[in-house]
Design a protein around this nucleic acid. Structure first.
Lengths: 239, 239
DNA sequence: CGCCAAGTTGAGACCTTTCAAACGCTGTGG
DNA sequence: CCACAGCGTTTGAAAGGTCTCAACTTGGCG
């Protein structure tokens, strides 16, 4: 249980030589260590299980301890948009900190575990907890802007590359392999997030594989040539 | 000086019957009244003047008192992305609250005035200032998600409509006319924000004018048929 | 008065979408 | 144990929306 990304971890570690251009700001580190001593409510998740839904009464924040989640918003007329894929260390629910109800859906893509944070209590006991929250929020804004930039200025293939490099770097920061990743989301989710059709995502992956840049086997992705991929971003036709 | 949007204000007020579907969360209100008594540094701006640039040392936050600003991020390889257009009451610089340097450029699109907020001082004197900040940050995240949704799921024309309705509603909330608006940004800025080419923006505006939905005269936009516009969003082919 | 930035419009090319079909897993029931 | 349904993925071919490039117009400003 909770063993998401083990397949990646069992593979050899590899170098990752430099940050992805823009998408390079993560949440404030160390929140997990901060709450280590507290009596937290732990909650295990199955794949495709909702952690919470937009509109539900917001009781607490959740710190991801294991697994992979997607967050998505849905417009009144039914259009859906995946706003991000969240990994261990990410906070879920912060976007509704000032509201009585959640503002998005949070769905587990795999088995996982979250820790429920008692916000009011933490605010009192930890002097700089509130400031930590603002840091997490600000960095989420910058992350979103990075993706808006990518979606607005890059071709389909470049967006997919950006996603792969970003995910690779995030997984590596968590101690997993940067070269071999398991996508926990469907092509449809990925396309939705990158503002592409799922077929376009598939084609981009196939093409990158044909170029020898990556290896694709269903949701297992091997990054064969990281610097080659990064070079394909630099040669941006600026759209 | 500071008389941005006067042209709109001098025109008759008109009804705005209902919120724009998704993009409907604004910054926490009343920040201006909160800081009313404090000895704030005021700063006047000209058109095209930078309030701050990404990378500059961040000293303070700025509360827009008058005018219109754009914020934008620039990737290392020179791709630019307008992340938003900011009006009176909006806070500039919050996205870098946890950093020593600004994370975006803030550029005045018109004459305007900002109030410089001494963050550290406010944090001490106003008990819930920090909490207000988190509210502003969270609402910025939701706003960004709304635009990501629009850009990812709507056609060019629908994005332009969404922008016009959003701006109209924001201006009305500030006491300006909801029917007659002055765009302070160029077509290029608008296109950049909406992930479209400037020519596509022009064509969308021309087409909406041909349909009798709006009147276009350079940067003066008259919204002739708000519900008609909103209907064009509902008839989304879901891309 | 003339230059220049901003905006408009047209025509063609191109990338992505759309629609369709086939394939491969996975879980279920006979 | 295998057949089968169902979802996710892959690939092809055609259509279409947006981009690109270009010319022209307009209004502002030195």
């Amino acid at each position: 249980m909770l063993q998401s990304q083990v397949s990646a971890e069992s593979l050899p570690h590899a170098e990752y030589d430099g940050p992805t251009p823009v998408l390079r700001q993560w949440a404030a580190p160390g929140l997990a260590t901060l709450v280590a001593g507290l009596p937290l409510q732990r909650r295990c998740m199955r794949a495709r299980q909702y952690l919470f839904r937009a509109g539900e009464r917001r009781q607490s924040l959740f710190l991801i301890h294991a697994g992979c989640f997607k967050t998505c918003v849905i417009s009144p007329d039914g259009r859906e948009k995946v706003t991000g894929f969240r990994l261990r260390g990410d906070l879920l629910g912060i976007d509704a900190l000032d509201m009585p109800h959640y503002a998005c859906n949070a769905i587990s893509l795999d088995v996982g575990e979250v820790w429920e944070l008692p916000v009011a209590q933490l605010r009192d006991s930890l002097p700089d907890f509130q400031q930590r929250l603002t840091a997490v929020l600000a960095s989420e804004i910058r992350r979103d802007w990075g993706w808006m930039l990518a979606i607005g200025t890059l071709s389909a293939e470049q967006r997919v590359i950006t996603f792969l490099l970003d995910l690779s770097a995030r997984l590596e920061a968590l101690g997993f392999s940067a070269r071999c990743l398991t996508l926990r989301m469907t092509r449809a989710d990925l396309g939705n997030f990158l503002a592409l059709q799922l077929e376009t995502v598939t084609r981009a992956l196939s093409h990158l594989q044909a170029l020898g840049m990556i290896g694709v086997e269903r949701r297992q992705i091997r990054i064969e040539d990281p610097s080659g991929l990064r070079a394909m971003l630099g040669t941006a036709s600026l759209h």
